[in-house]
Amino acid sequence: MDIISLITGSPLLPRILISVIVIAVSYYLGIMLSNYVMRLRLKAPPEVIHNISRALRVSILVLGFLIVLSILGIELSGLLVAVGFTGIVIGLATQQVLSQFFSGISLLLEGRVRVGDSVRVGDDWGVIESIGLMSTQIRLWSGEVLTIPNNDLMSSKIYNFSRSIARRVDISVPISYTSNISKALEVIRGLLDSKELVLAEPQPVLIVDSLGDSAIIIKVLFWVPSQEFWTVRREIIREVKEALEAVGIEIPYPQRVVWLKELSSR
């Protein structure tokens, strides 16, 4: 006679007590094993380890629950048939939840984003704070935490700024029509060359981009280490203006030439 049959043959009260013990043991065993997984030095991103440990905890609890059903004498085969029928109903009802869940798994496996990545999703900019099975949290630059359901995130355009080790800065510099273009290009090139964090390769590119209404537009394209993008960008914009002013090259205001026709008086 196996241990389950022995227990199911006993009166109800001891079975309830044993069931409580089984649930408690599976609960604490789940916590212990999940903590153990969290402490393991696995070569996987933290969000994946976190979700594995959570799944392990839930699985052990579910296993304990199934054992308790056996102990209480509830037929698992009958229950499974019932679950089969109700599964369809629940599946339809929880379509949204399941969609979020599978999107979460897909997000973790695909690795489009990781905890700590700097991202833009739609109009929201921030850093990925956590990736759960159902939703992802982004700490916005303004400090709030934005929670996005994983299915929404999966269908959004995600700009991940942490994936690249270098990024290109594009700035437009307008100079007046009376300025010497070659001199302006030389000054900007010299400035970029003197900056440590402007990459030498890929080489900076300067293009006389267009002849605007009020100015000649020079496009300045250069690469910087990703983590220094904003610092270098704002520094270069300020220094380009100062350097051009120092050599007498004007950055003009929008201007319009108005011709006044003088009518002869009769």
Binding site: S164, I165, A166, R167, E196, V198, L199, E201, W223, S226
Partner: peptide, 15 residues
């Protein structure tokens, strides 16, 4: 003078 370069594509290369 200190300068850096990117060797390879921005996501797979090295600084």
């Amino acid at each position: 003078k200190v300068k850096y370069a990117l060797y390879g594509p921005p996501d797979l290369g090295v600084l």
